[in-house]
Amino acid sequence: MTLNDEGNGAAEESLPNYKVIRVGDVAFEGHTNKEFAYGRFVVNDLIDGIMSPRFTCLRPKHGYPVSLWKYYI
C-alpha cells in the first residue's frame, strides 16, 4: 500500500465514486500477471483514505491487529 499526496490523476468528477478504505481494510486487485496469477490482496497499514472503484475493499468483521492481518493474508 502506498500513499500518493499528489493524487492519482483521476478526474474530479470521478471522485464521488471512489471508496473509503480504512486502516486494516484489504484492497483486492483482480488484475492478474506473472507474479500474481489470481490478483493480489493488499492490507492498508497506512492511513484512512480513498481508492479507485475498480478495486474491491474487504473489511474484517472483528478488529484484528493490522500486523496479524497482514501475516494472515
Rank of each mutant, 00 (worst) to 15 (best):
G39F: 01
N33I: 05
G24C: 09
G9L: 11
N8P: 06
E35I: 04
T32L: 03
G9Y: 06
A37M: 07
S14R: 15
G63A: 01
N8A: 13
D48Q: 01
L68D: 08
D45F: 09
T2E: 14
F55K: 02
A10K: 14
K61V: 00
A10V: 08
E35C: 12
N4I: 06
M1G: 13
K70M: 05
D25P: 01
D48A: 01
C57L: 13
V42N: 03
V26Y: 02
Y71S: 02
H31S: 15
K70L: 11
L46I: 04
V23G: 05
N4D: 09
V66W: 06
M1F: 02
N33M: 01
F36V: 09
G30L: 07
V42C: 15
D25T: 12
K70D: 05
I47C: 09
I50H: 09
Y38H: 14
E13G: 04
G9E: 11
A11H: 12
S14T: 11
I50Q: 13
Y72G: 00
P65V: 12
N4R: 06
M51E: 03
Y72E: 13
E35S: 12
T32E: 06
Y38S: 14
M51Y: 11
A10H: 04
E6C: 14
A27N: 05
K34W: 03
V20K: 02
N8W: 07
C57P: 01
N33T: 00
E12V: 05
D25R: 00
T2Q: 14
V23W: 06
I73G: 08
R22L: 06
W69S: 13
S14E: 04
L15N: 07
I73R: 10
F28P: 15
R22W: 08
W69P: 00
I73W: 05
A11R: 06
G24F: 07
G30T: 13
A37H: 00
W69G: 04
E6A: 13
G63E: 03
G9C: 08
G30A: 15
N8I: 12
Y18E: 01
V23Q: 09
V20I: 08
W69C: 03
L3Y: 15
R54M: 05
A10N: 10
G7P: 10
D5W: 03
K34S: 02
F36N: 10
Y72Q: 14
R22I: 04
G30K: 11
D45Y: 12
R54V: 03
G39N: 05
N17F: 14
N17L: 15
P65H: 12
N8Q: 12
W69F: 03
E12K: 12
T56H: 08
R40S: 06
G30M: 12
A11G: 13
G7D: 14
L68P: 01
M51G: 05
R22V: 03
F41Q: 04
F28S: 13
V43Y: 01
I50G: 00
L3K: 09
G49P: 15
K70H: 11
R40E: 04
E12W: 15
E13P: 05
G49E: 15
I47M: 05
Y64H: 08
G9W: 07
L58R: 08
K61E: 01
F55Y: 14
E29L: 02
E29M: 01
R59W: 01
G30R: 13
D5F: 13
K34Y: 07
N17M: 14
R22E: 12
I21A: 14
K70E: 01
S14C: 15
I21L: 08
